[in-house]
Nucleic acid binder design. Structure first.
Length: 351
DNA sequence: AATAGGCTTGG
DNA sequence: CCAAGCC
């Protein structure tokens, strides 16, 4: 998911690609150098509109009607149409500081704010960073170590190998685990940016579910507490480390592991996220994590129109005063579509 | 006013 | 607790 995945299915004809790229570059400059995330967003949206427009923009009037193009961005486009360049961009490109900040931002865990800080401390390149690792957090050190690997996309073939490995190993711990690799892989794309794994255990339910269903005394049940997801997840992570599949840990909390993995020595290091969810929340979870972002947005909108509220964890019906009721019982992705009276869409169809 | 909100780290 | 970063 995210902007990277979107790019893959952009239109065949992109007559305004040049202009779109320029706007995006200005946006990145606003975010990384001027610490203006909202401006970045505005430029990004305008850029996206330009990309989706299949008619070549020749006059400023054509641009003004696009969504995301207002006064300021309109002026920039006008400048581009008249002169073939944009001053703001040239300013950005020749600015040495902005080049350095951009370079530092390649490192996972270094955002605009940290990059500025490092610059003010005299860091001018990734090479500088390598010799001043005391300035970095644990996450950033790993980002630096694998900066080249993390920029490479993961071929579908390798994703499939990772999937098989994970399913085999985790089922081997306990057959009651279910493992799903979500994201663009699940949607059938030929490459992915990272590995996004969701796991559940058929005996594991959320506290909310246990209370609503009055399951307090049921046997064999693992009811969510602060520590239970950790117990279920830690077992798995320990094993994957022992097998040398997981090579580094970025963050490891109650319910979510973030780290680095590698299938065999022939492969690059890949970013992997693994999280554990209660069974009753699993299908809303995989729906959410499978995306695409656009698909999620649309589905949630439809849900709202039909008197439901859908989020990452559950689907609830809204009562007449708009208050959400109990979470609906869901045992598959299909169930979610059924409640909403939407035809089921396979992951490959979720644009 | 602006992507939604949660998770995790680090101070 | 807050800020940053990521998903």
């Amino acid at each position: 998911m995210g902007p990277r995945a979107k790019k893959v299915r952009a239109k065949e004809t992109k007559p305004n690609e040049d202009l779109a790229n320029i706007l995006l570059e200005i946006g990145e400059y606003e975010k990384n150098v001027n610490l203006q995330p909202f401006k970045y967003n505005a430029y990004r949206r305008a850029s996206q509109s330009l990309l989706e427009c299949d008619k070549k923009i020749k006059r400023i009037e054509d641009a003004k009607i696009l969504k995301g193009v207002g006064k300021r961005i309109g002026e920039r486009i006008e400048e581009y149409l008249k002169t073939g360049k944009i001053d703001k961009l040239n300013e950005a490109r020749k600015n040495n500081k902005s080049k350095i900040l951009k370079e530092l931002n390649r490192v996972a865990g270094i955002g605009p704010s940290h990059a500025q800080k490092l610059f003010s401390e005299g860091i001018r390149s990734l090479k500088d960073l390598k010799s001043h690792q005391d300035l970095l957090t644990h996450h950033q050190k790993i980002g630096l170590k694998y900066v080249d690997d993390f920029e490479q996309r993961i071929p579908r073939q390798e994703m499939a190998e990772i999937e098989k490995f994970l399913v085999d190993q985790i089922k081997n711990i306990d057959v009651k685990y279910t493992v799903t690799i979500c994201g663009s892989y699940r949607r059938g794309l030929e490459s992915s940016g990272d590995v996004d794994v969701l796991i559940t255990h058929s005996n594991y339910v959320s506290l909310r579910y246990a209370q609503e269903q009055n399951l307090r005394t049921a046997k064999n049940l693992i009811i969510e507490t602060k520590k239970s997801p950790e117990m279920l997840l830690k077992k798995i992570i320990d094993k994957l480390k022992k097998l040398d599949f997981i090579t580094d840990t970025i963050a490891f909390g109650d319910s979510k592991f973030m780290g680095v993995c590698k299938v065999t020595n022939d492969y690059l290091h890949r970013r992997i996220d693994i999280r554990i969810l209660p069974f009753d929340e699993y299908f809303c979870g995989i729906l959410h994590m499978t995306g695409s972002d656009m698909f999620n947005q649309n589905m949630r909108k439809t849900a709202k129109e039909r008197g439901f509220i859908l989020n990452e964890y559950c689907l609830r019906k809204l009562d007449s005063s708009g208050r959400p009721g109990k979470a609906l019982k869901i045992e598959s992705e299909e169930d979610i579509f059924k409640y909403l009276e939407i035809n089921f869409k396979r992951p490959e169809e979720r644009y």
